[in-house]
């Protein structure tokens, strides 16, 4: 499936990442299509965070290719994706100023940036806190603000690296609902998690990563019903923590 002006599908071939002598990712290849959320799961240290950073362009591959569907559109590929980190990085400014910051960077005028930032805040239920200092928010509110900030950019692809790892169950649910809303609106979600329940709730598709290798890519239903590899089966039974 290929929309006329889309950066998807994302084609990844032979992706390797080495840090010194250590091979963190080995020969990873897959295609990400437009559609429901793709969840990257796998034990601790499998290379999930490194993979997302590579895809988002924050790290350079040691070998292999990351090929976006439309490298030369009107808007550069980098401007059409956004990323959320495990710990939200919030500027020492108001909630609204945080949400508006990347829009201003992208060249929007002050008024337009503020208007779109407010839409983002409304999406995550933070419009009432717009003038508050961002870093005084609770952990869950901070991650919701990071989501609002990313959503305001209207990215085609949104990467999320364990966005709920530091959150309590209620805040986790709130974040999941927002992610589901964005997915329903057509944003391609690519998200890592080590929380299997979360993966079941959100995933349309699963990529199972283990020790730097992609062992499975499958529709969520099929994966959870019967994973193809012994490692994935062990992981689903909760026996594979590393």
């Amino acid at each position: 499936m290929r929309l006329p002006d889309s950066i998807l599908p994302l084609l990844v071939e032979g992706l390797c990442y080495r840090a010194g002598a250590v091979e963190i990712l080995r020969d990873v290849g897959f295609t990400l299509e437009a559609g429901g959320p793709s969840l990257v799961i796998g034990p601790n240290g499998a290379g999930k965070s490194v993979l997302l950073r590579l895809l988002h362009g924050l790290l350079a591959p040691s070998a292999g290719r990351i090929h976006w569907g439309a490298p030369e559109g009107n808007v550069p590929v980098a401007r059409r994706q956004a990323m959320l980190f495990q710990r939200p990085v919030l500027l020492r400014r108001s909630v609204l100023a945080n949400a508006a910051y990347p829009l201003r960077l992208a060249g929007l005028g002050r008024a337009e940036a503020a208007a779109r930032a407010r839409e983002g805040l409304a999406l995550v239920g933070l419009e009432g806190l717009a003038e508050r200092p961002a870093r005084r928010l609770s952990g869950g509110e901070q991650q919701r603000l990071a989501l609002a900030r990313a959503a305001a950019l209207q990215p085609e692809v949104l990467f999320l690296d364990e966005p709920c790892a530091n959150l309590d169950p209620a805040a986790t649910r709130a974040v999941e609902e927002i992610v589901a809303t964005l997915a329903a609106r057509g944003t391609k979600i690519v998200m890592t998690t080590h929380d299997l329940g979360q993966a079941r709730r959100l995933a349309a598709e699963v990529l199972f990563l283990h020790q730097g290798r992609l062992l499975e890519q499958a529709p969520a239903e099929a994966f959870f019903a019967g994973p193809a590899t012994a490692e994935a089966r062990a992981f689903l039974r909760g026996e594979l923590l590393w």
């Binding site: 924050l58 990323m83 990085v89 990347p102 960077l105 992208a106």
Partner: peptide
């Protein structure tokens, strides 16, 4: 150190 990765994600290099 705290901001670098997020700012790069927003497309802001060191100068910006």
């Amino acid at each position: 150190e705290e901001y670098a990765e997020q700012l790069r994600s927003f497309g802001a290099g060191p100068w910006r």
